[in-house]
Computed example of a mutant assay.
Amino acid sequence: MSLSQQLPERVPVVAVEAVSCSYRDFVAVETVSLSVRAGRIHALLGTNGAGKTTLLETIQGLRRPASGSIKVFGRDPRRHRAEVAGRTGTMLQESGLVDEMTVADQLSLWRGVSVREDSVNRVLELVGLDHRRRVPVSVLSGGERRRLDFAMALWGDPELVVLDEPTTGLDPQSRRTMWSIIRDLNTRGTSVLLTTHYLEEAQHLADSVTILDKGRIAVEGTMSDVLAAIPARITFISAASSAELAELRSLVVGDVAQTPSVDTSASADTWSVTVQTPRLQDDVAAVMDWARAHALRLAQLRCAPASLEEVFFEMPALAAGRADS
């Protein structure tokens, strides 16, 4: 029976409780708590120097926290490192690939040092490299090398996979391919702890998120809750009159802002209108009803919830609100 199967369902695969990490007098991580639930993807985000790498190393048992506690599969990852590592796959930013080896030989070498059993054929097929099994690692593209790194992390079907910047340097198509592989892996029940500088990537993949700023938690929660911290946005261009725009303000929950349109194809009397709202569905309906009532054409109409990028840029204000609550 695996470690995660021995845990009650309510116990997270990774539990970080009030952890602080220091380098002599420098505090890299300060009183951070987070959890990765079984079968979920958790994104750990932050700017360079925010403490992500230090926290990941501590979660993997590579360093001891100055204070607080960490449990992986209910165990201390430092005291029970071999046991925990046997159930965890890790993909680092820097690969340890041997250029002179073929792809298949690289995985055969990995099989010899891994405590988990697996098939070279299965893993190559999983990451889409079965057709490259006989070519030297040195001729692989950047995206293919990252997939080979990923194959080693996935070896033996670990219950937890830690991915440190898995798509750095990849072209957009290769990045999307990696996303698909991660999603498929998670669908089969593997838990994922992910760090990335690509906020679109985190928003696309993660169920929950922790954003660090100078070693402290600035924002945390489920992805939907974190995105809801910033108002959604409705934008359009319209030739509405001042009176009609005043009426719109009385109909929507959100705040309405207007600026002269810079659309060269529109008439001189058009406005670019933005509605920032905490209730997107209700205000979209109100805008559409308002436009129909006045026979107004809404050009370039867009409706979208806040993005993780917007949350990231609003992080200081959100962190201040978190501290006050």
Rank of each mutant, 00 (worst) to 15 (best):
L3F: 06
Q5F: 06
Q5P: 03
P8H: 12
V11F: 14
V11P: 13
P12S: 14
V14C: 15
E17H: 08
S22V: 11
Y23M: 08
R24W: 11
F26N: 12
F26R: 13
V32R: 03
A38V: 10
G39T: 07
L45S: 01
L45Q: 01
T47H: 05
G49N: 09
A50W: 01
T54Y: 01
L55H: 00
L56M: 10
E57P: 00
T58I: 03
P65C: 13
S67H: 13
G68I: 00
S69R: 15
S69E: 15
I70T: 01
V72Y: 09
F73V: 03
G74W: 11
P77K: 09
R78E: 12
A82R: 13
V84M: 05
A85F: 12
G86V: 02
R87L: 11
T90V: 15
S95I: 00
L97V: 02
V98D: 07
V98F: 12
E100S: 13
V103W: 00
A104M: 11
D105L: 07
Q106V: 05
V113K: 00
D118A: 06
D118Q: 01
S119G: 13
S119F: 09
V120P: 13
V123C: 11
V123S: 08
R133G: 09
V137Q: 08
S141Y: 08
G142W: 04
G143R: 03
G143N: 04
R146L: 10
R147A: 07
L148Y: 03
A153L: 05
L154I: 02
W155A: 00
P158I: 01
L163W: 00
L163Y: 00
T167L: 10
L170M: 04
D171H: 08
S174K: 11
R175M: 05
R175L: 02
R176S: 14
R176Q: 14
M178P: 11
M178L: 13
R188T: 06
T196G: 06
H197G: 11
Y198G: 08
E201M: 00
A202I: 08
Q203W: 07
Q203R: 10
L205F: 15
L205W: 14
V209E: 03
V219G: 00
S224V: 14
L227N: 03
L227V: 06
A228K: 02
I230W: 00
I230V: 10
I230K: 04
T235M: 03
T235S: 07
F236K: 00
S241K: 07
S241T: 14
S241W: 06
E244C: 09
E244Y: 04
A246I: 08
S250V: 06
S250L: 09
V253H: 11
V253Y: 10
G254K: 03
D255R: 12
V256C: 05
V256R: 08
T264M: 12
S265T: 02
A268Q: 08
W271Q: 07
T274W: 01
P278F: 12
D283L: 09
V284P: 02
A286E: 04
D289M: 09
A299T: 02
A299N: 03
L301V: 11
R302F: 06
A306S: 01
E309Y: 04
E310W: 06
E310K: 02
F313Q: 05
E314H: 10
A317H: 07
A317Q: 11
A319E: 05
R322S: 06
A323H: 02
D324Y: 01
